[in-house]
Structures are given as C-alpha cells and as structure tokens.
Amino acid sequence: MKQYYKRISMPARYLINLVLIIAFLAAGNAIVSGGVINRAQSSIILQVGIYIILAVSLNIVTGYLGQLPLGHAGFMAVGAYAGAIFWKSGYGASLPAGLSIIIGLIFAGIVAAIFGIIIGVPALRLKGDYLAIITLGFGEIIRVCIINLPSITGGTPGLMGIPKYSTFLVVYIAVVISCAIIHMLMKSRHGRAILSIRENEIAAESCGINITYYKVMAFAVSSFFAGIAGALYAGYQGLLTPASFDFMASINILVMVVLGGMGSMIGSIIAAAVLTSLPLALQALNTYRMVIYSLLLIIVMIFKPSGLMGTYDFSMSRILERIINFKQIRADKKAKKAGDANG
C-alpha cells in the first residue's frame, strides 16, 4: 500500500484481533453450552479445533520448510499418550483441573518435540520422497511401540478413563495460542530462515543460515503442536487406541494442508474445518458420503492445484485498511485505468 493510505497502528491491530478473538469465544461458548446445537455437532466443533492445530503445525514443515513428512500422526500419538498418562497419574490428578490441563498440554508438546528432534536429526538429512518414506517408517514404529508397551500405554485395547478435559473453552484457547505462536514465529528472522530453506537451500546456507538447525527446529515446533493436539484428542475421546494414529491419520492431516494451500495458515484452518465437518454435513447422503468427499478433493486439486488459498496470508488489519481506504483505492484504480487508456 502506498504511503498516503491510512494505516492502522500496531497496538490497534493487536487490540482489534484480541477483541475479535474474545467475541468469537463468547459467541462459540454460548452456542455450544446454550443448547443451540446438539451433542454430535458440538463434538464436531471440538474435532475441528484439534485438526486445525494438526494442520497448522504440519504446515510448518510442509508449507514453510518445504519438506514432506508422512508421520505427523506419530507425534500426535506421542503427545496424546503423554498427556493422558500425565492426567491419569497422581501428579495430574492432585492438581486443580485448570492447572493440570495447562501442564498436561505443555508436557505433551515437549515430549512430542523431543521425539521430533530425535527423529528429525537423522531424517532431515534426506529430502523429498526419501524423507517421506523414513518419516512414514518412524510414524509406524511409534504406533507399534505403543501396541507393545501395554504396561504404560494399555496396548491394543487402549488407555481408558482419561479425564475429559477438552471442553470448547480449552480447545479454543489452545487453537488461538497455537496459531498465534506459529504466526509470530513465521513473521520473524527465524521464520524467514525457514522459508529461505524451502526456496533454495544452497543460497540459504551461503547467506549464513544454519540449515540443519532450522530444519530440526521447524520439525520440533511442528511436532510440539502436534503433541498438544494429541493431548486435546485424548481429553476429547476419553480413551486412546493405537489404531487412531495409523498411516491414514497422517495422510488425512496432509490432505488438509495440501487442500488448503501449502504455506497458507488460513488455508490449513479452512481446510481442516471443512474436511472435518464435511462427513457430518453429508450424513444425509449416507453411502455416497465418502464418494462425494473424494470427488471434492479431486475437483479442488484439478481446478486449484495450489490449494484453496494458495500461499495467501490472512490479515484482519489489511482487510480493515482496505475498507477505510476504499474510496481512495477506487479513485486510484480509476485514474490508472484512464491513464492506461490514454497511454
């Protein structure tokens, strides 16, 4: 935007966003707890929130770093079991619920991030399809380990009796904080370093960027939030079975990122919301449900291969600035058109 357009100052931007976030929270809470929607619908809303965190976190590695890992559900599983075990343990149970939720989520994130680093260091030496295969393998290893450690994880039958901490409020706040942190990170020198690796590794390294460090860092941050989403999933389901974290779960998350547009956070959010709620919305169609779901994916990929939002970055303030400067922008466009016609 040119200099003479009116700008919204930084503090005002944050204030506007904060007000909107709180307004959404109040509205959402009223809808969910006010009995406007039924149980199935409110449980879909929770799922949407969990999948938003998963898609946005995978987007760090897929969209921003430009790598293709296929084991995201593995990190989700690590976080889910870490959170569930903490909440079920004496430590978690002795704390007041609010504090227990916060510590459990952070603990789940940290454990998942540690796994992310352990797996990322060897895996990120590889690129493209090789990385995809190796992360796929690690994802499966995690799942098999969970099955074969029944004393800790409950094995195949699953882990039961997890306190159902994932209320609308908890999920909503977790989504907002996760998205905010990832956004703040990406709009900084560290974020630019991650983007530069996607764009051109050799050039990034010759610009003084430690690419190994930033690759592992992006991978760790991505698995941290996958872990948090996993813990929210545990608190939403109340029980965990290893089958929920298989290869297809990873693919589902990847589909959301690709469909939304790799490198677009708003794209990941929209795709996660649409793809999670679509099966429910199409329930009336019964058997044709999954056919329509698949067809929609194919249609989007044919007509918009870069994903729904491309690499578009959503900014509330930018939209507001457009509205306040509406008259000026229109006048400029007219002047430009007239100039083009004359020239």
Binding site: L195, S196, N200, A203
Partner: peptide
C-alpha cells in the same frame, strides 16, 4: 539462486 517466492525486501532481510 534467489528466494523467488519471497519479496525483494525479505530476500535482503535473509
């Protein structure tokens, strides 16, 4: 070898 999808300013900032 530029960072083609980033802005000119971001290229320099990197």
């Amino acid at each position: 070898r530029l960072f083609k999808n980033l802005t000119v300013e971001d290229n320099v900032k990197i």
